Simulated assay, not measured.
Amino acid sequence: MVNIQELDPSASPLDYYGWELRRRREEHRLTQQQLGDVIFCTGSLVGQIETARKLPTREFSERVDAALGTDGAFCRLVGLVLRSRLPAWFQPYADLEARATYISVFQAQVVYGLLQTPEYARALLAVDYPDKTEEMVAARLERQRILARDEPPALWVVLSEAALMQEVGSHEVMREQLAHLLTFRDNPWVHIQVLPFSAGEHTALMGSFNLLRFEDDPDIFYAESYEQGHMTANPSVIKDRSVGYARLQATALSVEDSAALIARVMEERYGDPS
Results as ranks from 00 to 15, higher is better:
Trp19Tyr: 15
Leu21Asn: 04
Arg25Ser: 07
His28Gln: 09
Gln33Met: 04
Gln34Arg: 08
Gly36Trp: 13
Ile39Cys: 01
Phe40Lys: 09
Cys41His: 07
Leu45Val: 10
Leu45Arg: 15
Leu45Thr: 14
Gln48Ile: 05
Arg53Asn: 15
Glu59Gln: 08
Glu59Asn: 05
Glu59Tyr: 03
Glu62Val: 03
Gly69Asp: 14
Thr70Tyr: 09
Asp71Glu: 11
Gly72Asn: 06
Ala73Ile: 07
Gly79Val: 15
Arg83Glu: 05
Ser84Tyr: 04
Ala88Tyr: 15
Trp89Gln: 02
Leu96Tyr: 06
Leu96Ile: 09
Ala98Tyr: 12
Arg99Val: 02
Thr101Gln: 14
Tyr102Leu: 03
Ser104Trp: 12
Gln107Leu: 03
Gln107Asn: 07
Gly113Thr: 11
Ala121Asp: 00
Leu124His: 10
Asp128Met: 02
Tyr129Gln: 10
Asp131Ile: 00
Lys132Thr: 15
Arg140Glu: 08
Arg145Gln: 13
Leu147Gly: 06
Ala154Arg: 10
Trp156Asp: 02
Leu159Cys: 01
Ala163Leu: 05
His171Glu: 07
Ala179Pro: 00
Leu182Gln: 09
Leu182Val: 02
Pro188Glu: 12
Pro188Tyr: 14
Leu195Val: 11
Phe197Thr: 02
Gly200His: 14
Gly200Phe: 09
Glu201Gly: 09
Leu205Gln: 13
Gly207Gln: 08
Glu215Trp: 05
Asp216His: 08
Asp219Arg: 03
Tyr222Met: 06
Glu227Val: 01
Glu227His: 11
Gln228Ser: 13
Met231Ala: 11
Asn234Tyr: 14
Pro235Glu: 15
Tyr245Pro: 02
Gln249Thr: 15
Ala250Ile: 03
Thr251Lys: 07
Thr251Arg: 07
Ala260Met: 05
Leu261Pro: 09
Val265Pro: 02
Met266Tyr: 05
Gly271Thr: 10
